[in-house]
């Protein structure tokens, strides 16, 4: 076995395959065998580990760009709903 074969073997799967499995890996959705191959690949592949870190950074940025902590419910709308709630429960 030459050096390239040994490298491919250590990587377990190709980068192209690992990239398609990134979200499943983050979600803990990979089967036992796929999860081991993914872990082996990430241990040996700096570029895919970097990509995974960037994906995590992306998720964090989307989260941080996310919804405001507070938001007003229009009081008039709320009162009309309360009225409907009252009349429906009375029936």
């Amino acid at each position: 076995m030459d050096d390239l074969d040994a490298t491919r073997q250590a990587l377990a799967i190709s980068c192209a395959d690992a990239l398609e499995l990134m979200t499943d890996h983050l979600e803990g959705a990979l089967s036992g065998a796929d999860a081991s191959r993914m872990r082996a690949h990430l241990e040996s592949c700096q570029a895919c580990s970097l990509f995974l870190d960037q994906l995590r950074a992306t998720i964090k940025l989307v989260h941080d760009a996310g919804p405001p902590q507070e938001f007003a419910v229009n009081p008039r709308r709320l009162e009309s709903l309360i009225e409907l709630f009252r009349s429906e429960r009375d029936n």
Binding site: L4, R8, L11, S14, D17, A47, L50
Partner: peptide, 15 residues
Amino acid sequence: LRHPELGEGYWAAPP
């Protein structure tokens, strides 16, 4: 994903 030695499917350079 065209590594000069490993070939197709492997990063040519880290992203």
